[in-house]
């Protein structure tokens, strides 16, 4: 019986490896041409005229038309893997959660689970009710991965599957993960979950090459965690949870710029001022994990 149920899975894995060998077959998008400049800009080859384009760090740059040539990028597993390990240079991502605004709408969780192929009981971000039995006081606390600067989970990983990038994001590589769950035991914030069963929509994502930044497709028997929506950040967009919030709970931004943007109102404020003026704190600072997620207290007088 057990053999029977295992048979199709083994076959699919072998097929997957074979596909990995022939890179051409894996690349779903085939060769995507990164055109710099518009159609008119391409035909207008007179040197001296400039075109505007976005570089890898999403900065608007200008270059001479004669210098620009189309680049072909094969979007296969190898490319995605290399890209995922790299991180956005010169960035230090940071999140601020304003607890006073959270009304338990749980839109962040929904958006996250939709993007990362998660079952309803699996969370990359979870909204917890903090309840004080004695006084009956309660508030809601969204809790994503804290993307610590001193991450215990990365320390204990025996196979280098989970790692910290230079932009501060702690990611996990499904392809390397052996499912030992040391990281789940090491994380004081319970930010990680394990794929005990086949992930949601496994059939749909069967042939999609693994994108580390999106952490999709998920794989049974591996650990999964919040990625600060690294795929969205590369496009210069706010994370899924941040932009889905209807109550303006989340601020997200770059510590190097000292600016954070509210996901709902799109209001941009100074990070240092926001933290200083609102008595911000981090979770379990005594552990020395140095989280990159800050909290603003749930009530203000």
């Amino acid at each position: 019986m057990a053999e029977k149920s295992n048979a199709p899975r083994r076959k699919s894995r072998r097929e997957f490896l074979r596909k990995l060998g022939t890179t051409g077959a894996v690349s779903i998008a085939g060769t995507s041409l990164l055109f710099a400049g518009s159609k008119t800009g391409n035909s207008d080859k007179t040197p001296g005229s400039k075109v505007k384009m976005l570089d890898q760090n999403n900065r608007l740059v200008e270059a001479d038309v004669s210098q620009v040539s189309p680049v072909s990028v094969k979007i296969d597993a190898g490319y995605l893997n290399k890209k995922g390990r790299k991180g956005l240079p010169g960035r230090k991502f940071v999140m601020v959660v304003d607890l006073a605004r959270c009304r338990n709408a749980r839109k962040c969780m929904k958006a996250c689970q939709g993007a990362h192929q998660l079952r309803p009981e699996q969370h990359h971000i979870n909204v917890l009710e903090m309840y004080d039995e004695e006084n009956g006081a309660s508030y809601f606390m969204p809790k994503p991965c804290q993307h610590c600067d001193n991450p215990n989970c990365v320390t204990v990983c025996p196979v280098d599957a989970t790692f910290k990038r230079e932009d501060g994001i702690v990611l996990i590589d499904n392809e390397r993960c052996i499912g030992c769950r040391f990281c789940i035991a090491a994380c004081p914030y319970s930010a990680r979950t394990f794929n005990w069963a086949e992930p949601k929509d496994a059939e749909k994502y069967k042939d999609v090459p693994y994108d580390m930044e999106l952490n999709v497709p998920q794989k049974k028997g591996t650990v999964t965690k919040c990625a600060f929506s690294a795929d969205r950040l590369r496009e210069g967009k706010l994370p899924y949870c941040v932009s889905a919030c209807p109550n303006g709970v989340y601020y997200f931004g770059d510590e190097n710029e000292d600016l954070v943007t509210n996901g709902t109102t799109r209001e941009t404020v100074r990070l240092s001022k926001l933290l200083k003026q609102n008595a911000s704190y981090t979770l379990m600072p005594e552990l020395g994990t140095k989280p990159r997620v800050y909290y603003l207290p749930p009530r203000r007088s």
């Binding site: 999403n58 960035r91 210069g236 967009k237 706010l238 997200f252 931004g253 770059d254 710029e257 600016l259 943007t261 799109r266 209001e267 941009t268 404020v269 100074r270």
Partner: peptide, 10 residues
């Protein structure tokens, strides 16, 4: 405005 990564700081 100062142009940040995700928004404009007035």
């Amino acid at each position: 405005f100062v142009v940040g990564m995700f928004g404009k700081f007035p």
